[in-house]
Design a protein around this nucleic acid. Structure first.
Lengths: 341, 341
DNA sequence: AAATTTTGAACAATCGTGTGAGCAATACAT
DNA sequence: ATGTATTGCTCACACGATTGTTCAAAATTT
């Protein structure tokens, strides 16, 4: 039955069946016209026009849930990230959203708070909703709950070395190596590292790059502290470092948020950067230009990571193979590194 | 037919029908057990246990798409925001995601790039996907495409005055008035305002607050410049302001991103804040503590907005009425405002 | 023993779209 | 006039879960 809707009344939209009844024809005919298969199924152009006109008049919009069920395809991608409020991830999310939208996909967003349990649950919820694929920046180093998934997955920023799941990430090792080397070249002998979540490959590789550079220099003490990618952690870790009898002359901070915390601690203790302390931050942000001093940092190729991840996911969804990639980051030299005597 | 899956093989999950066939019973029985209605429909506890055991063994997970179609409910909320990479919105998104997740809802995310056309399309796509409700930070001042929507909507941060759609936002007017008054109290007579997207109510109310404070002071020139909430806009607008013969002695910047641009311009021109220029920023961010100087800013109640918005949306979805709210912001006084002589 | 109630489940329709198969009616060929 | 091809559509089922109705068998009452 078709109801006339008075102005202001809320309508739930007309269905194919209702259009069919309105025109005294079968639902299949209407469906075929509206999905552009009129010619293929030899619908007369008369009928075709009539259906199109009626659909337009009633502002017909296909119920995507019903289509999904029938076509086993949701045009929806699950995006699972640890912290959408982290500038790195929200920039990544923006690029990914834009890229996916251009391809007709929408994003179901899950924020895991870097909690493996929430992550596992998120993956399940997304698959229950029949997403066509998943983009995940995972927590942990094992990734058991990614084994035998029925949907294509591409890992972003973080990944699992033993698992055969394609990934895109910054070349964390080499850029950390380079950053640490810069500090070494400036004569620093006591370089500490404030890390993020230890059980993520990106953190681990950054730490490895740091350690490797120090080991190659053959004269430095390795000191890694910290537990997550937050301002709080940067702050507390830095305070701890400065409590030591042997204070660091330089800090390598493994994320933009951590860096804010480190700077806050330094400021509170009256330590001048770079005079009293040199600082390099992983993950460049616009405001690093404006802090006092401007911060030397490692700029991650966020846009390229996002685009590449989407491209790879599409390849997987088309049944193709795809190769994991590490993209080089760029060291942006500013004012926070000074020669240590 | 039930297929035995070898290790590593990808499974799409078992269905109710398949469980039913496996146990030689009807789908309805299985469904009733699995949705916890066994007692209500007098399923024997024998059968109940058998079904539960089988479901568990095969790791049964209900197909949410099918449930949605049947129940006319998707447990999904559309979140439509102008720019997820803007710290204000991504913080808001985080709070909203967390809040909704706790209530068993997932988020379909759309980023409109502050483009009304993309926004309109997004709303349609979300409704096609049968979202249960919408949270929107809209573009524009009219909001025609929000009239007669078939789903509950709550506007966040931005809203439409003539439309009867509930909203939660910062009390932009009063906090802008207060911020401008602080500049006036410090003796500034040439206070310029760098605005964001003009056709948003939040921007407009901030400008109104600014204007109103100046008018009440009865001795100031109103100067508003700018076009969107980006660093780029802050930068270019500030450069333009400093080209004037009558340079501003203070700037009121209407977003955190704009502020970064303004500071960048000031730095390039060799203008010292606050000596040569006082600055207040709308929308506080952690790094405003660390810039040189630390920036006086208006802190928006992001968490409260997010929670309130979700709460209101739930009220609407339950068929209740709900009242729009403006929540007061807090002026955080730091070092970027100085007396002007 | 007959009538009634209770138990434990199956049947069939539904949500809205999409699709292989089928089937009249017409057009054309022989 | 009979056979074949084409046209233009309808039928009926599928996707997977939920639910009002129905119904035989067992248990209980009279």
């Amino acid at each position: 039955m078709y109801l006339f809707l008075t102005f202001g009344m809320k309508s739930d939209g007309i269905t194919i069946k209702e259009i069919a009844d309105l025109l005294n024809m079968s639902g299949s005919t209407v469906s075929r016209v509206l999905s552009g298969k009129a010619k293929k199924f030899r619908i007369s152009s008369e009928t075709e026009e009539l259906v199109k006109k009626t659909a337009k008049e009633h502002n017909y919009r296909p119920n995507q849930i019903a289509r999904n069920l029938r076509l086993q395809k949701s045009n929806t991608i699950g995006l699972v990230i640890p912290d959408i409020s982290n500038p790195f991830f929200c920039n990544l999310a923006l690029k990914i959203e834009t890229e996916l939208r251009a391809q007709g996909k929408l994003i179901l967003l899950c924020d895991t708070h870097d909690d493996s349990k929430i992550e596992k649950e998120s993956i399940e919820l997304l698959i229950d909703r029949q997403v066509d694929g998943l983009l995940v920046a995972p927590v942990g180093l094992k990734g058991d709950h990614f084994k035998n998934l029925s949907k294509p997955v591409v890992m972003i920023d973080r990944y699992f070395e033993e698992l055969d799941i394609p990934f895109v990430s910054t070349n964390n090792f080499s850029s950390s190596y380079e950053a640490t080397k810069l500090l070494l070249e400036n004569g620093h002998t006591r370089i500490s590292c404030v890390q993020g979540v230890e059980s993520t490959i990106s953190n681990r590789e950054r730490v490895n790059g740091y350690k490797s550079a120090l080991q190659d220099s053959d004269k430095n003490i390795i000191e890694v502290i910290g537990s997550d990618f937050t301002i709080e952690n940067g702050y507390k870790s830095a305070l701890k470092l400065f409590e030591n009898s042997q204070k660091p002359t330089a800090i390598f901070s493994l994320s933009n948020q951590i860096t804010i915390g480190v700077m806050k601690a330094a400021r509170e203790l009256g330590l001048k950067i770079p005079d009293d302390l040199s600082l390099i931050s992983f993950d460049d942000q616009p405001y690093f230009e404006l802090t006092e001093p401007a911060i030397t940092s490692v700029r991650q190729p966020v846009e390229r990571i996002g685009k590449k991840a989407v491209q790879m996911l599409f390849e997987l969804m088309e049944g193709k193979e795809c190769k994991s990639t590490l993209i080089d980051a760029k060291l942006i030299s500013r004012e926070s590194v000074q020669r240590s005597e």
